[in-house]
């Protein structure tokens, strides 16, 4: 099982700070697609991803127990 954390406005869009999903064996890009579909979140493809607090590219494969954080880049200044 994997914990998926949402940051910034993703948290508001999903309505939860985190969810539990079974995504071991999938890539980061696949996880984004699953989350976007399941929680109706737009623009997830441009969010950065951390696995266990370390930046992970889209091709990275998730292991069981990994904590995944989705961090949308922010542009205001």
């Amino acid at each position: 099982m994997n914990k998926i954390l949402f940051f910034a406005h993703l948290r508001d869009e999903v309505g939860e700070e985190s969810v539990q999903l079974e995504v071991a064996g999938k890539t980061v890009a696949e996880v984004k697609a699953i989350v976007a579909e399941q929680y109706k979140v737009a623009k997830l493809d441009t969010a950065m991803t951390a696995i266990n607090e370390e930046f992970a590219p889209n091709e990275e494969v998730i292991q069981d127990g990994d904590v995944i954080a989705l961090i949308p880049p922010v542009s205001g200044g």
Partner: peptide
């Protein structure tokens, strides 16, 4: 990190 120019609308 970004690979593209994200438009967030936020």
């Amino acid at each position: 990190l970004l690979k593209t120019v994200p438009i967030q609308g936020l």
